[in-house]
């Protein structure tokens, strides 16, 4: 074996089969796996027991920092650094600060959501071993793939292949690193 293996890839025809296969793989004790589909299928990530709260937390932190930034900016600008007395109106008239505070909260959260989805997903990543799998260019169109990765403790070349073949895929192939 010259090239180390990344994993074994099974190809399915429908989302239902993929969900079923992912559930079976999890039940069989496999943990390091990923599924590939042309559109989001909620039950697949559920079947893998994949949960990630980080993105939501990042967005919340960003929202709060946007809010604080806006308030500091306006208080600094209108009351401390450049106080303008206009007809004796109060310098710290917070109701007038609400629109900008609201807008900056949204702006910071929006950027945080988009940047996090890219960064947490490890993108941009033009090369990835799964692109070597045969027929994988249909993973974005009309095929559904499940890959059990070689670094899974339970992974064994032949046993895992037999297991995947038992799930009635269209084919099973080895993916090079």
């Amino acid at each position: 074996m010259s090239v180390p293996m990344y994993g074994l890839m099974a190809e399915f025809q429908s989302p239902e089969q993929l969900v079923h296969a992912t559930e079976a793989a999890y039940k069989a004790g496999y943990r390091r796996m990923d599924a590939y589909s042309p559109f989001p299928i909620e039950e697949v990530s559920e079947a893998m027991h994949f949960h990630d709260d980080l993105l939501r937390r990042i967005v919340l932190v960003a929202a709060i920092s946007g809010l604080i930034t806006a308030l500091v900016l306006q208080v600094l600008g209108s009351a401390i650094d450049y106080p303008l007395n206009i007809g004796g109106r109060p310098l710290l008239d917070w109701p007038a600060f609400i629109p900008i505070t609201f807008e900056l909260t949204i702006l910071f959260s929006g950027f945080a959501a988009v940047i996090s989805v890219v960064v947490l997903n490890g993108l941009p990543q033009p090369y990835h071993p799964v692109f070597n799998a045969p027929n994988f260019d249909r993973a974005s169109i009309d095929r559904f793939f499940l890959c059990i990765e070689a670094n899974d403790p339970k992974f064994e070349r032949t046993a895992t292949r037999t297991f995947l073949e038992g799930l009635h895929p269209m084919n099973v192939s080895e993916v090079d690193q």
């Binding site: 990530s45 994949f50 890219v118 997903n121």
Partner: peptide, 8 residues
């Protein structure tokens, strides 16, 4: 960006 449709 190298999107590959991973479930994660």
């Amino acid at each position: 960006l190298g999107w590959r449709g991973s479930a994660k």
